Structures are given as structure tokens and as C-alpha cells.
Amino acid sequence: MQDENKNIIIILLVLALFTGATIELNEGSTIVGVILFIVAAILISRMKLRGSEGVQSSRNYLLIGGFIVAADLIYNYISGSELGTLDSMVFFLGVSLIAMGAGKKDLKQLGEFGFYISSVFTGLYLIFYSLFGFLNIDFLHLFDHYFVLMPTVAFMKIFSIPIEIVATETVILYGAEPMTIVIGGPCSGLYSMFLLIGIVAGYSRIEKMDVKKTLGLLGFAVLIAYIANLIRVLILYITAYFYGMDVMMMVHTHIGWMIFAVTAGGIMYIVNRK
């Protein structure tokens, strides 16, 4: 049980590092991104995996997982598009299926855990971003305005920091000079919610938790993800106010995946304690 808990913590760290590496390679430092990938690989090698004679490999999982990984990489190469968060999760889904098809018991369990995380994230992403966009449902903009901008701006005004909402997802912050800041897309914090929901779903299935406990843990994870994102946005406001837009954009690149790592690790620590 101790090794299994250790493996779950490691896979959470690997997920955070993998997400961070993707963000760094796209928006931040290539060197930092490569380092994060290397650290993730080292962590994976530290997992203690025990073989099991009763566990058979599945060629179907291996083939499907390999196809998903290859298709994702080939599509991005041919289209010349950048590797985004959804691509990372699709890639992670393929790798998880490959792990599920392996003949080692612990590796298969980790693959199952990764499968729940990546498939839940991908499903929620397709619903909230793709399907809602296709149906012209304005949920994302309304969420950003009422649940992100309004509470964070109200908090800043408590401390007499000059800031005002000028559009659905846009604020003007009056620091050394007026700065226009757009809070939308990943800044809504929904990505972190999707990931944490996937983590809870995977952990619940593997540990065979009852429905009541699972729903309670899901509600707790969503609440923590929401509060963590508000804190992240407030940090960005404060950074822009005191140090300017350039420093804020640098912090914006790094802080999201770091807060996710701390949040996910904290939730799993609480769950393991109980």
C-alpha cells in the first residue's frame, strides 16, 4: 500500500511537470521545459514496479495507445500547430493506454489512473470548449466575468488598488501606467478543475470509494481549484501593479502549473491521511 501511495504521488508530480513543460516550451523557456521533461522521466524511473504472473498484457490497449500517441504527434507536425493543453492530455491518454496494456501490475494500475485523468479532462474540454462553442452557449465568458473578474476586482479594491472592469473578460489596472489585462481561456481555472476532477475520478475508481465519498471529494476538489485560481489571478494583478506587464507575463507563464502541483499534491495528501 505504501508503494502504491508513493506511485500515485509520483504520477501527480509527473502530470504537473508534464503540463508545466508543455507550457514552458510554448510560452516560456525552452531550457526550463526540457529540464521539466527530464525530471518527469527521472521520477517515472523511481517508481517501484512489481511484476505479477496473473496480469496479462493487452495488445489492444498497446495498439490503441500507440495509435493515439502517433496520431497526435503526426497531426501537430503536419499542421505545424503548437502542442497545447488538449494535445498534452491526448498524448497522456495514449501513454496511459500503453501502460494499461503492459504486463506489470503496478504499471497497469498507474496506466488506469492516467487513463481516468486524461479521458475525463478531454471529455470535459470537448464539452465546455468545443460543444458549447458550436452551440453558441456563452458559459465560458460569463464564468470568467462573474466568477473570476468580479470577485478578484472586488478584493483588489478593498486594498484601494485602482482597477476596473471594462469588458466581459478585460480589466484596466492603473499602476505606473494604465495596463489592460484580459482574463479568459486558461485563466478561468477550468483546466485545473478538469484535471483535479479526473484525479478524483481515477483515485475513486482505483480505491473503489463509495458514491457519497466520491461526490464529496469532487466538490472539495472543484472548490479548492476555484480558490487556487482566484489566488493566481490576484498574484498576477499585484505583480502587474508593482512591477509592470513584462514581469507579470513572466510570472503568468510559470505560476499556473506550480499552483496546480501544490493543489493536487495537497488534495492527495489529505485523501491519503483519511
Rank of each mutant, 00 (worst) to 15 (best):
D3W: 03
K6A: 10
V14Y: 00
G20T: 04
T22F: 02
I23S: 11
L25P: 06
E27D: 12
F37Q: 01
V39F: 11
L43P: 03
L43W: 00
I44H: 00
M47C: 08
L49Q: 03
S52H: 04
S57K: 05
N60S: 08
Y61S: 04
L63H: 04
G65P: 07
G65F: 13
G65S: 07
G66E: 07
I68N: 06
A71D: 07
L73A: 11
N76I: 12
G80K: 10
T85A: 14
S88Y: 03
V90Q: 06
M100C: 12
G103S: 14
K104Q: 15
K105N: 13
D106I: 15
F115P: 05
Y116M: 12
F121Q: 05
I127C: 09
F128T: 15
G133D: 13
F134R: 12
L135T: 14
N136A: 15
H141Y: 02
F143H: 01
F143S: 03
Y146S: 05
F147T: 06
P151T: 13
V153T: 13
F155D: 04
M156W: 04
I158Q: 06
A167Q: 13
T168L: 05
E169R: 04
V171G: 02
L173Q: 01
M179Y: 03
C187P: 06
L190C: 06
Y191K: 01
M193Y: 00
G202F: 14
R205K: 10
E207Y: 09
D210N: 10
K212Y: 09
K213V: 10
T214V: 07
G219F: 05
A221G: 09
A225C: 06
N229L: 03
L236W: 03
Y241P: 08
Y243L: 15
G244V: 14
G244D: 13
M245T: 07
V247C: 09
H252K: 04
H252Q: 05
T253A: 15
M258D: 02
M258L: 14
I259M: 08
F260L: 08
